[in-house]
Amino acid sequence: MTDEPLERWAARREGRLRKPGERKAITLSDGPQRATHVDPDAPRMLLEWDGFAWQPLLTVENYAAARLALYPPPEATPADQAEVTAPVEVRSPLAPGTGRHRRPRS
């Protein structure tokens, strides 16, 4: 059995690790941590990963405020600046095909 080169191992390990600056919210309530939909009005603490441990960042009043802090809305584009998009090819879902799910034509 041959050993894996150190560079390949380090790259594979780096891909599995959390990136510093990653954030998450936890519920501040009595008892074990539960899903966010169970108590959406409970206060939340935002945590940030510094590469070694989760560090407290700030406390917010509920799930909606935590979501807004974690995922801020994108800034609106100015009205005088048009959005540049590539043309999108639209394909009909009923296009003819030879898939096994199609009935043979009689």
Rank of each mutant, 00 (worst) to 15 (best):
A79T: 05
E83F: 06
H101D: 10
F52L: 10
T98K: 02
G31E: 06
T27S: 08
S92P: 03
E7T: 08
A11T: 08
P74S: 07
T85I: 06
Q81Y: 00
G99A: 14
R103D: 03
W54K: 03
E22W: 06
L6Q: 13
E89M: 11
R23Y: 06
A65T: 13
E14P: 01
Q55C: 15
R18S: 09
P5N: 10
P104N: 02
T98L: 01
I26P: 00
D80V: 05
V88L: 09
A53D: 06
M1R: 14
P72F: 05
R34V: 09
R91S: 12
W49S: 04
Q55D: 06
R91I: 15
P32Q: 13
V90C: 03
L58D: 02
M1Y: 12
W9R: 14
P104A: 04
L46P: 08
V84H: 05
L28F: 02
D39I: 08
I26D: 07
G21T: 01
A53N: 02
P74K: 09
F52Y: 09
N62W: 01
Y63V: 05
A86L: 11
E75L: 11
R18K: 12
V88E: 11
T2K: 05
Q81G: 00
R44H: 14
E22G: 04
G15M: 15
R16V: 00
D41W: 11
D50P: 00
V88Y: 04
